[in-house]
């Protein structure tokens, strides 16, 4: 089934075409969302939302870009919105706990225990916090770059920028991550 067959099939209400699309691109969408939210259940929920969005707005797809690029864009947008909503929720949760108990219960600023050796789960948590603090474009480029089998050209298509911009964004993201991690560990290991 070609890309055009899938699109025209879904537009005409063919369930087989929609099933084919879900089966073919599910893993790609799931892992894209996972790069941003870092939680398997949330990534699965977002994947569902992405395909429902595709089902609802397939008539808007004019074929100017590849179907895969369009899917990546929806997945990235949905994931970023989810992360933003979560941040706001966390902030309100912290304000609520501050007003009820007088203390901030900020999960995002976990403290480092210098006496206990770190494991990869904890390191991943600090890394994710550092990634969250990157600028949006650096974050998108860096997260997509970590996906298996995606080229710089594809990332450039998704982000609507040139390949050289993608390279520069990824480089700056790595430099900034290193700086942020250095600051974090310097402040916590003394």
């Amino acid at each position: 089934m070609t890309e055009q067959d899938i699109v025209s099939g879904i537009k005409s209400g063919d369930q087989k075409a929609f099933r084919f699309l879900v089966d073919k691109y599910q893993k790609m969408v799931l892992n894209t969302c996972f790069q941003f939210v870092k939680d398997e259940d949330d990534a699965k929920d977002l994947t569902q939302d992405v395909f429902i969005e595709v089902f609802d707005s397939i008539h808007k797809f004019r074929g100017d870009s590849k179907l895969m690029t369009w899917l990546y864009r929806i997945a990235v947008n949905k994931s970023l919105n989810f992360v933003q909503r979560n941040k706001r929720k966390r902030l309100f949760g912290n304000l609520e706990s501050f007003f009820s108990s007088g203390n901030f219960n900020d999960e995002s600023s976990d403290t480092y225990n210098a006496d206990k050796p770190l494991d990869d789960t904890e390191r991943s948590k600090y890394l994710y916090q550092a990634i969250e603090s990157l600028s949006q474009n650096q974050r998108i480029a860096f997260s997509l770059h970590n996906l298996d089998g995606i080229s710089y050209a594809q990332i450039a298509d998704v982000m609507n920028v040139s390949v050289s911009s993608v390279e520069s964004l990824i480089h700056r993201a790595k430099v900034n991550l290193q700086k942020r991690l250095l600051d974090f560990y310097k402040n916590n290991i003394e």
Partner: peptide, 20 residues
């Protein structure tokens, strides 16, 4: 160094058979 190495390591989720 250890944390930056994790950034290059890709954790891949497998497809959910009940997704559709």
């Amino acid at each position: 160094k250890n944390t930056m190495t994790l950034a290059d390591r890709t954790e891949e989720l497998s497809a959910d058979p009940f997704m559709f």
